[in-house]
Design a protein around this nucleic acid. Structure first.
Lengths: 188, 188
DNA sequence: TAATATGTATACCACTCGGTACATAAAAAG
DNA sequence: CTTTTTATGTACCGAGTGGTATACATATTA
């Protein structure tokens, strides 16, 4: 593994464990067994490193969830696949998912939040497009696709953060129940 | 308003807007129109100030929600009152609620998280006691009170954070729908 | 009026922060 | 074999960090 990747991996690990602001560049370079100018050579700044970490995690997440979010006439099935994709990703890369969640809830005026904002929008857009497409078959959803997208992702993140803290097992039964409960909220 | 309160109010405001780590003690004292030793005179340390801010917010929150969480045989009604209490509080003190949420999602090894942890537990205990009490009338809930407490609070926080960002209006209809949906998840 | 807390200000501490100027090493290209 | 690009190390920067020693002012109490 070259220095570039070593830095990226350690950054994801330390940012997830201690938070972006709490980790110093010096500490980071030391943990990656590299000197500070080397780090700056590759990533330009601490914020640049954070952005690289986010891109490294969000690109595969978005790719995998986009595939699952293709609507083909069966909304519960699509949501089921989507929830599974999210759960699988959070299990495969728990550190990144933790980091991403904590950034998402960080204060709206901070530079950390600015770094996740665009990725949050891309997720939101993907989900909105899904619920928009489903309006054809579920007329009563009309005009609510934005709200559905936000609450669905919120529900998933609630469950995932419980899963990350071992308070819940993210198994098939849970996925089924969660989607069922969410669909019930749409029908009624 | 005396200096003590001025410091506390500014701290809540700045911590909520920029994050605990991103705000310096110097900056804080300046914003409260006070010198640094004055701040240390009252609160001892930056962490001590954060703890005071949390106590100042969580004590009334817990008091108001505890009253709403008294189970008297009607679970949907209790959850309805509880959700209303949470929503009302988040509207009354949006800055504090934001801060509390962001701390709750900050990395588990950070000192910020240590500061909210006990308050999170007290909320969790209150909700567990409620669902525990409701087991008498809802046998199928048995053994799941921990999960119900966590997911119910998670749902409320999802909605509240959408409300704080003006993506959702936290009105009576929403409370009704949310509780209804949650109860459906219990029955089925 | 004297003694005692309480509150506030000046000036400083050692340390860490993110970031960089500059020299050198290694490798690729001519 | 030289030149140029890419990569890494040494040593440093000014600014800001959380925190404090100490003196001074203002009340309260004896």
């Amino acid at each position: 593994m070259d220095n570039r990747q070593k830095i990226l991996a350690k950054a994801e690990e330390l940012f997830a464990a201690q938070g972006y602001n709490a980790v110093g560049v010096q500490e980071l370079a030391q943990a990656a067994d590299v000197t500070k100018p080397t780090l700056y050579h590759y990533y330009g700044s601490k914020l640049g490193l954070l952005q690289a970490v986010l891109e490294d995690g969000f690109l595969p997440l978005l790719q995998q969830t986009r595939e699952a979010a293709q609507y083909q006439g069966d909304l519960p099935l699509t949501l089921y696949r989507l929830a599974n994709a999210y759960f699988a990703f959070s299990k495969a890369r728990p550190g990144f998912y933790r980091l991403q969640l904590s950034l998402w809830f960080s204060p709206p005026e901070s530079e950390d939040f600015d770094a996740v904002r665009p990725w949050g929008h891309r997720q939101q857009e993907m989900l909105e497009a899904l619920f928009q497409a489903a309006v054809r078959d579920h007329g009563n959803m009309k005009g609510r696709h934005r709200r559905y997208a936000a609450t669905f992702l919120g529900m998933l993140n609630t469950l995932i953060s419980l899963g990350l803290n071992n308070l819940l097992e993210l198994n098939d039964e849970l996925v089924f129940n969660a989607v069922h409960q969410f669909m019930h909220g749409i029908y009624s």
